[in-house]
Computed example of a mutant assay.
Amino acid sequence: MRIGVNVGHFAGSPPADLAARLQAIDAAGFSSVWFAEAYGSDVFTPLAFAAALTSRVRLGTAVAQVPARTPTATAMAATTLDHLSGGRAVLGIGASGPQVSEGWHGVPYAKPLARTREYVSVVRQALARAAPVSNDGPYFPLPSPGSELGKPLRSSLHPYRSDLPVWLGAEGPRNVALSAEIADGWLAMFFAPAFDSFYREALDEGFAKRPGGRPDGFEVVATVPVVVDDDVERAADRIRPELALYMGGMGARGANFHHDVFVRMGFESVAARVQELYLSRRKDEAAAAIPTELVEQIALVGPASKIRRDLDAWDATVVDEIAVQGLPDDLDAVAALL
């Protein structure tokens, strides 16, 4: 099982020691570094920063939001990063959610799967640079309909790799299937080994729609909280607040896709309670309402010996690589798991 690091997005401000920690991650043998974006820090600038400080780790967006940029702007950023990093970029794309898409970016969220499918098609055209980019779809038409001066254009920057990998971030089964159908990899979140068969079925559904079936090199990377601590409960307590945020507050009631993951896992009453408490601003109570059993399904917590045993369950799943969630304070202890 390969292990990378998903730094995520910056809350408040970037860590003061980010440069040193990125260099330590590269030197320690981690396989990848990922960044995210929500409605604050963007995803490409930190990766360019990381590219200048590292020499071997893959550099991925987990994820670049569909509503944040036109597909050609995303292709421009990804191609530029690929050049500057010597071909280490992985472009992860995700639909985001209605609150961010419509409230922050001012972009409609309706029909996210169809929108993502069209977006990826345009991105791939721009990355390949085989012909001027054009698209007659309803979401990202190029040239702009009715334009008198617009014409299809080909990127002035030649690709470092015309087949730069495009992945999808997905949680629901239809979106997971879409990643298998049109992408080069799946970025998983809140993956639970106990539900591996559920995700295999979703992936197989997508591969069945793809000419030639599953392509060589298709990968699955799961972002996973990891806390090495001799006390399992103390380790779980470090994860509960972030888990409560996603389960309870990352999206409106009825439109929180992270919440839905735990409902599908059989924790419907827990998820409902956490959401109720969180949206009532009782965040500490929301975190405390999350049982250790749930934490252990989607996270690796406890002594190093226990985590190594737990990793055996992950080895048997569709996951090829674990991306440790956040910048671990105990980097040496996590690196020892490699």
Rank of each mutant, 00 (worst) to 15 (best):
A73M: 15
S162V: 08
L157Q: 05
L338D: 11
L178M: 13
F218L: 06
D320E: 03
V220M: 01
D310G: 08
A77S: 14
A244R: 11
M250D: 11
W104L: 09
S305R: 15
L53M: 03
D284T: 13
R58Q: 15
A244P: 08
Y39T: 15
L337Q: 11
P98V: 13
P15K: 10
Y139K: 02
P215L: 07
V270Y: 04
L338P: 10
M189Y: 14
L53C: 00
G97K: 05
L243E: 08
V66A: 01
E233G: 12
L91S: 02
A236D: 13
R2E: 14
L127N: 01
E268F: 09
D204W: 03
L300N: 02
G4D: 00
A313V: 05
P141E: 02
W104I: 07
G169S: 14
I298D: 02
P159S: 01
F207L: 07
D332C: 10
A208I: 01
L47W: 06
A78H: 05
D196E: 10
G326M: 07
Y278Q: 12
G106Q: 11
A323G: 02
A126L: 05
R2V: 08
R69F: 10
R154F: 06
Q275N: 10
D231Y: 11
R214F: 09
D163S: 14
L91I: 03
N175R: 08
P291S: 11
G251D: 01
G172H: 00
L59P: 01
S31N: 08
V57F: 06
R282C: 11
V224Y: 02
H83V: 02
F49S: 07
S147I: 04
H259E: 03
S156H: 09
G29T: 13
V123A: 02
E37R: 04
A24H: 09
L22W: 13
E268P: 09
F35I: 05
R117K: 12
E171R: 10
L331W: 09
V66L: 12
F262K: 04
V319S: 04
A128N: 04
S280V: 06
I307H: 02
T45P: 06
K151R: 14
R210W: 04
A52L: 06
V63G: 06
L84K: 00
S55Y: 04
G94F: 02
P303E: 12
A192P: 07
V176L: 01
I93Y: 05
L84T: 09
A272I: 09
F190V: 02
R115H: 04
M250S: 12
P141V: 00
A77W: 03
P303N: 08
V123L: 03
V324S: 00
G254S: 12
A62G: 12
